[in-house]
Structures are given as structure tokens and as C-alpha cells.
């Protein structure tokens, strides 16, 4: 993953689990010794945002860039000027967690001038168990709308098909089929296949993309 471009943009439908992926990705980057920053560009969702993990990120020396308006729970669509540091300070490995739909991705569009100058990877996280992205047509339509809103191109797909606590290996495999079909159609590679660690031993065949085991950090208050 250190081979990914310095700026990693994480997009995907709400419920695709892109924030969970972004959080795990940033932690992995930091663990590998990289100077890491994560920026929360989600100005649409009021709950379950990556900035809620700020205390943990601080502990791991990951720089958190979120709203310039202090306080976790505002629904003020404000972007911090600090986000520019992600583009200007090239000593950082950067993860940008972007809002889930075209409207959410529009916030990223504001940085297109910086991104024109900066090689980036833009991952589209796909969950086949979300109705709007459960087939090839829906997934492509959604991916295109995120590209349009953000004014950037998706460079790779991430299969993160899940049902929260009810996920089965079959979910992941059927999501993989969808990702492969989308990948063929759009000629975009599958970069990662995300799964909780408990599924690793159940995997029998190899698949397109690198297996990316995750731990669940974005928990509901009754989840241990």
C-alpha cells in the first residue's frame, strides 16, 4: 500500500464502509512508519464520521484534518483550510475520506486545481449489499456520479461487500463478482478486497486484488 500514490482519495456509496476502510488504511500506513494524515471531507453525514476517531489517531501520531469548526457534531458544511496541507506538505502520506455520493464528493471537487498537480489514487469502495450499487449498471452509474461531483477519476476499485455483523464469506465473494464485472467494463483494476480477519482462513482461492484485513473501529454504542 506504500506503493499507492501519496494522496489516496477514498470514495464510495454511504454504507459501502469507506470510512472503516479509510480508518484502517490510515492506521496501517502509520504502522508501516509513514508520516500519515487523514482528512475528513464528509460534509453531508452528521454521524459515524472518521473524525470521531481523532483520539485514537492522535495516539498513533496520525494528523487529523477535519472541519475548521470545532466540535464533533456540527452539521456545518465547512472545510478546513488545513486540508491544503495535504497537498502542499509532501512529507505526508495522505488519506482523504470523501462524502458518499455526488453531493458529498463535490467537496473534493474544490481541490481539483491541487489534484491536477498531484498524482493521486482514487479508490471507489463498493458494497454489493447496498441497493443502489448492487448490480453492474447501478455501481457504474454511482461511480460515474462520484467522479462527476469530485471532478476526478477513479483509479481502482475496492471490494468491501458486507452486512455489518451479519456478513458471510458468500457476501464477500458475490461482491467480488460484481467488482470483477465492473472492473472489466470500465477497465479499472480491483486494488483491495476488504474483510474482517475472521474470514482470512476461510478463503480458498486467490482473487483479483490484494486482501486487506480490517478491524472494526466505527462501532455502534452497543457493539463490544
Amino acid at each position: 500500500m506504500l506503493n499507492d500514490k501519496r494522496v489516496r482519495i477514498i470514495t464510495g456509496h454511504y454504507g459501502s464502509g469507506k470510512t472503516e476502510f479509510a480508518v484502517n488504511y490510515a492506521l496501517r500506513l502509520a504502522e508501516s512508519g509513514a508520516k500519515t494524515a487523514i482528512a475528513d471531507l464528509d460534509i453531508v453525514n452528521p454521524y459515524f464520521r472518521s473524525r470521531e476517531m481523532e483520539p485514537m489517531f492522535n495516539e498513533k501520531n496520525i494528523r487529523v484534518i477535519s472541519s475548521s469548526v470545532k466540535g464533533l457534531s456540527g452539521d456545518i458544511p465547512a472545510l478546513s483550510p488545513e486540508i491544503n496541507a495535504a497537498f502542499h506538505d509532501k512529507s505526508y502520506q495522505v488519506v482523504l475520506d470523501v462524502g458518499g455520493d455526488k453531493v458529498g464528493a463535490t467537496a473534493l471537487g474544490r481541490y481539483h486545481v491541487s489534484l491536477d498537480e498531484e498524482p493521486y489514487d482514487m479508490f471507489f469502495v463498493l458494497n454489493a449489499n447496498r441497493r443502489q450499487t448492487h448490480d453492474v449498471e447501478g455501481a457504474i452509474k454511482y461511480l460515474r456520479s462520484v467522479e462527476e461531483g469530485s471532478r476526478q477519476r477513479v483509479t481502482a476499485l475496492v471490494n468491501n461487500t458486507h452486512l455489518c455483523g451479519d456478513t458471510t464469506l458468500e457476501d464477500i465473494l458475490s461482491g467480488q463478482e460484481l467488482c470483477e464485472a465492473v472492473s472489466r467494463e470500465l477497465n479499472i483494476p480491483i486494488k483491495y478486497v476488504v474483510m474482517e480477519r475472521k474470514f482470512l482462513e476461510k478463503l480458498s482461492s486467490s482473487m483479483q486484488g490484494e486482501i486487506f484485513p480490517i478491524d472494526i473501529y466505527m462501532k455502534k454504542p452497543w457493539e463490544d
Partner: peptide
């Protein structure tokens, strides 16, 4: 409560 509206579940 807000969580019922905002959370994702199967």
C-alpha cells in the same frame, strides 16, 4: 433517536 435514522444495518 438520531441513531435509528443515521445508522446502517442489515
Amino acid at each position: 433517536d438520531g441513531m435509528i435514522g443515521q445508522m446502517m444495518e442489515p
